[in-house]
Design a binder for these strands. Structure first.
Lengths: 346, 346
DNA sequence: TTTAGCACTCGAAATAAAAGAGTGCTAAAG
DNA sequence: CTTTAGCACTCTTTTATTTCGAGTGCTAAA
């Protein structure tokens, strides 16, 4: 025994056929059925031997002894990297996507929400989208607006077009002088500076320098720091969550999966990483165990040539990669283009 | 035959015992089991007769011929209106609720989110909360802030402390004059006036009067009208949706139910109606067919003595009404108190 | 190296049987 | 007239048993 197994061309063809058949039907695929799907004629026994080899090599596995074969994570990976032929985009689909996505009023949040919806419907998966990153955003404007005697809204607008606000309560009455003082401090210390600089340390020294007004002003600066943090942590939108119910193979884990998706934080991390144009994580390739039965396709978008955010889908491992990857690229490209136009600085 | 069936005291006791037992266990309750739960001794046969009567009267029903009895909508209703003894609030719970809910920074949205979470955890149901109604809110401030050459944020702050914003794109460059002009128009026409007045009709006449600037300004006013509408339609927050999975009796309908909850609109209507302090809708009493197997408990909160919003839970009909109703009242009372303090005008 | 043939495995579906909980009715007792 | 013991009957749930079929792995011949 202990022979060496090489990946031959025939094995590749068989692997591709298994993957594609499984993606299409969701049923483990057996040697007989596979005969009809190959562009060369061999007996089922031959295919069986090849499949046994592929299983030994780690590309296929059997749910149980007498069932057909199913691709492993490794099998999908090999298929995607070496075997898959990306499908062309359907002209009509492109048009309708473009129409839907660009129908908004120019509001980035609305745009990404729409894009998420489109993707979710198109792919029958859950879609996640991130708002344009605020990493390098600067403060464009910061002010307080009183809403009652002791409560004011703190408003922060960034150069990335993100606007965050928050009510804040003070122990002392809010006078027009308070408002003006806050405005002046912001204008001189924050406007035009990166959001990151509004940290608690910075604030402490600042508040200290305010002397007699320190007590009065400090809650507002604390709130402002909160807002800056908010604006920095890019928002994640989730659409079409319930599409996941349509995929039986996710089984009872759908609930855990949805619970996982509900928390925005890991999602943000999920979508953040990766340097490629399109990131694909299959099953156990995902760092989060809740995603062990899912695949994730993430496609980034650029604003003014700079990586700014991403769109992604989450579904069963059995995704139609050949079709969906080009779609994701198309939509993210579109989003990037629209946002570049919208937020263009000059 | 055709005898008249009267509700006797014994029947009431039996009905209450059935309802309470079913709420506790989720199993149809049979005559023998019920014997142990009554404060008087009769044979199971007697109970059987009484239960048959209650079934004929419409308060109980059988899932199938040889199963125990389950309360009908009518049965629950009778129990809640006439038989139920509200449970006292647990001192420790109150404290921890108060602590959690009031731990925020004074932001109403954050407050209601926290309150929703608390309720969801406490009741193991989905919780809905509405932001304070903007019905009578007036415009406190409206302005545009440029974020790029042709894009600006429209910002609207209402007297109710709601702040809405939206990006808006113009076909012409946005100049400081544009900003000032917008500000002036808003100051003279909108500030201090009810939100409702910013309708499209009003806008049309206004834009017409702008003469040469009409084209330049109109997209902003349209966006402003959008924002006003947004601010008027009270936002609904949903928490603990996934708790619904824990209730097996909701069966396969959980998915439809969640899908229904995802759309905010019917939720808003659901929570809006009702004049009582606490509204309870049991199963088919709900107007929406998706809620036919669910119960809804809604408790309103007042700000400055005026009905302003509500907190609600959605769960199976088999809710522990005696315990949850007081809890809902407590939390909504608390929310009202905190918001009154926060938004107090004087 | 490929292929036909065949025994074997294992899950899924179908069928049968048994168990159990609860009812409704009857007839006797209070 | 009301209550209760007794009992046959109904219907779901559970468990056991069987059957079926798809698919494999192995062997031996081409």
């Amino acid at each position: 025994m202990n022979r060496v197994l090489n990946m031959t061309e025939r094995k590749q063809k068989i692997l591709a056929a298994v993957v594609e058949s499984y993606i299409r039907t969701g049923e483990p695929v057996g040697s007989k059925n596979l005969m009809g799907e190959l562009d060369f004629s061999v007996s089922s026994a031959t295919i069986r031997n090849e499949m046994a080899d592929l299983a030994e090599m780690g590309y296929l596995e059997q749910p149980h002894t007498s069932a057909g074969r199913v691709p492993t994570t490794l099998g999908y990976r090999y298929y995607i990297d070496k075997l898959m032929n990306k499908m062309e985009l359907n002209e009509a689909d492109c048009k309708s996507i473009t129409k839907t996505v660009s129908s908004g009023s120019g509001d980035p949040e609305q745009l990404l929400e729409k894009a998420g919806e489109v993707i979710a419907n198109l792919t029958n998966c859950a879609a996640i989208t991130t708002m344009p990153a605020g990493d390098k955003a600067t403060v464009r404007r910061a002010e307080i607006v009183p809403v009652s005697n002791r409560t004011a809204m703190i408003v922060l607008l960034t150069s990335a077009g993100t606007l965050k606000s928050k009510a804040c309560r003070s122990d002392m009455p809010i006078t027009p002088q308070t408002v003006e003082r806050f405005y002046n401090v912001c204008a001189s210390h924050f406007v035009g500076r990166p959001l990151e600089e509004i940290g608690t340390v910075m604030l402490q020294t600042l508040v200290a320098s305010l002397g007699e007004h320190a007590l009065e002003m400090s809650p507002f600066f604390v709130a402002l720091a909160d807002l800056a943090n908010d604006a920095l942590s890019s928002d994640v939108l989730l659409e079409g969550q319930s599409n996941l119910f349509n995929h039986r193979e996710l089984g009872g884990n759908v609930i855990e999966l949805m619970e996982f998706l509900r928390k925005g934080d890991p999602l943000a991390k999920l979508i953040a990483g990766g340097t490629d144009d399109v990131d694909i994580k299959i099953g156990t390739e995902n760092k989060y165990k809740q995603l062990a039965n899912s695949s994730v396709i993430i496609s980034h978008y650029d604003i003014n040539g700079e990586r700014s955010g991403a769109l992604g889908i989450i579904g069963p491992t059995r995704l139609n990669y050949a079709k969906l990857i080009p779609y994701m690229q198309f939509v993210s490209g579109l989003v990037g283009k629209i946002l570049t136009e919208t937020l263009d600085e000059q």
